[in-house]
Design a binder for these strands. Structure first.
Lengths: 343, 343
DNA sequence: TTCTCTACTGTGAACGCTCACAGAAGCATG
DNA sequence: CATGCTTCTGTGAGCGTTCACAGTAGAGAA
């Protein structure tokens, strides 16, 4: 080896080189690469040795050209961009999906559709077949992108329940309603009866379901639902602060509040502190998500854990199944009540 | 058009279809696609019309196969995984790079090398030529991945100054030293003289430079450097809390503290509050980064803004230049003092 | 032996594009 | 009229794979 390797990249070995080294044909190497059926053990071994020796790595472009698959998937974010920063859940979802895909040796392409222009470019990219499927994150529910992709025949899994139920697109979501029920039951078990709620956006299924769970448990328990105790937010910290403030004005002796996200709950804590309420003594606070915000706030938040690791795993599993020809599927995962200091 | 399009995806048009519709040859279409030199205006127009009519989108796999370029770049994260969550800067960097690349119509592949196994797989992927270049995020400085990539001849831009100066790898970083100087000057201008510091990890250039700036300004101002007022952290919230606590034990009448990251500064606020110090009356607190943490904490943090939007833009610019054959380059960007309530 | 079946292997074609090259057409110059 | 130059256009080859097909060898059955 006297070849210089400083500077430019050396031309990588091809399947042909491997075949030559192994003393077999391209076809045999290809078969070994794709599962090894109908290959003699001797050839199998020779090819593997040659691959190790040459450092061969398959050229995915050449493969894709003929198979028509790209063997990569897109992670598409259609949130308005600022949300990306405020939402602590996005991070963990992204990481989970990246790793779940890595296990299948599938690269993840990150796509952020902030502007209309970007949206168009990305749609063109996707529908041209440059990804085999799309993981879609968009709580923004009226999003036409899901339907567009579905109509284009692109395998798709959405994170969170989509608004239109008839739309027949796969999704993976936590059981919002059940989580809300658990939290409100917990608050009632503490003896609280004037339980407020700061909801999520009510044009999203998540927002609606958490509110529904809240109402359901109160009704079950014989506590009358007081509309003054319900105010809606948009998952942002600021809206949680404003919402809790409004609740206190309306019902000064509120003794518990269920806030539909941890970030909003952080805001609520601020409002409560400003109003001189002690948490949890005067007002118990329950959050939702179990994001980083829950442990960072003071006091640490009792919350409903969304199983983001499982959600990302399921999203990938369902997407790959769909790419493999299976029908769209909906997966609802159980949540878990996490007790901390705010209740 | 009686062709059904329910279910599977229709085979997309090729350059051949466009050529036929436009009444020209493949070569001419290809020339139009790649800049349009040596093409008559008439042909130019005919081809563009045909592209619009057919909805043609170039097949990147076929193109890559022949050009040897992949026209995609990798965003590689070699932090241990938990950091991804704690670091609010990661998000904004990732988004910035995605969008800067989108402007060049280049997809971004997200790669997370948490385990040794993942690291190996990713290196194989990269060195096989499946990306044209790599944006590397790794404050973890002894990271061999940068040198490995450089030795493999892969264009590379690192975020933040790398440790070994002779390593000849491109990087883009904020001017840590100058930022630190600004902050400490600001603290001194408030009349504070017992200025503590919680540093970043001192095996990273960022950590070292911020400390250097601190010492420099104090010396300049004739304030003796008191080693009891210096304690090191690791950018995590917890280490900021512990660090500030230790400083207070050693120097109870400390009247200001410069904390090398906003996240640590948040922790420091907690420690100060617990120790009964008012911020900023008793102790002025300065952070670094201007991350979300700075505005979320109470009081909001005076901090040094790192221009992340410019950093990501520059990273992409330098990387593309390097892919285009230019030499590695180092870019240092100016920081900015942001005044808020903590000083 | 001959036939069939199974297990395995090699070969040519094709995927959709770019690139190098050859040539055509137009125009100015000798 | 030949020559050269510039501008434009078409053609064939080839990038590294997979896939369909044809073929070989060996085992077992008739």
């Amino acid at each position: 080896m006297t070849m210089s390797n400083t500077g430019g990249r050396r031309k990588p070995p091809t399947i042909h080189d491997v075949a030559r080294v192994a003393g077999v044909s391209r076809g045999t190497v290809s078969r070994v690469l794709n599962g090894g059926h109908y290959v003699s053990p001797a050839a199998q071994e020779a090819v593997n040795a040659a691959i190790r020796k040459t450092g061969y790595v398959v050229n995915r472009h050449a493969r894709s050209l003929i198979t028509g698959r790209s063997d990569s998937i897109g992670f598409l974010l259609t949130e308005p961009q600022e949300k990306l920063f405020e939402d602590p859940n996005f991070n963990v979802l992204l990481r989970g999906c990246t790793q779940a895909l890595a296990a299948h040796d599938i690269p993840l392409l990150l796509m952020v559709a902030g502007t209309e222009d970007e949206r168009r470019r990305i749609m063109r990219y996707i529908t041209a077949g440059h990804v085999d499927g799309v993981l879609l994150v968009s709580s923004h529910s009226g999003d036409p992108v899901a339907e567009q992709l579905r109509d284009a025949g692109v395998p798709l899994v959405q994170c969170g329940k989509p608004m239109g139920l008839g739309s027949k697109v796969s999704y993976v979501a936590a059981d919002d309603r059940d989580g809300a029920r658990d939290m409100v039951r917990h608050l009632l078990s503490l003896g609280r009866r004037r339980v407020g709620m700061v909801t999520g956006p009510l044009d999203t299924p998540g927002g609606v379901d958490r509110l529904a769970g809240y109402k359901e448990v109160l009704t079950e328990a014989g506590v009358e639902i007081d509309e003054r105790l319900i105010v809606s937010g948009d998952y942002s910290r600021a809206s949680g602060e404003a919402g809790a403030g409004r609740l206190l004005e309306r019902v000064p002796d509120m003794d518990a509040v269920f806030v539909a996200s941890d970030l909003m709950a952080q805001g609520a804590l601020t409002a409560l502190r400003r109003a001189g309420r002690r948490v949890p003594e005067d007002v118990a606070v329950g959050g939702f998500d179990d994001s980083a915000a829950a442990t960072e706030s003071v006091p640490a938040l009792t919350t409903i854990r969304q199983p983001y690791d499982r959600i990302s795993n399921e999203m990938v599993r369902v997407l790959l199944a769909q790419i493999g020809g299976e029908d769209p599927a909906a997966v609802i995962l159980p949540t878990e009540l996490v007790l901390r200091d705010s209740t």
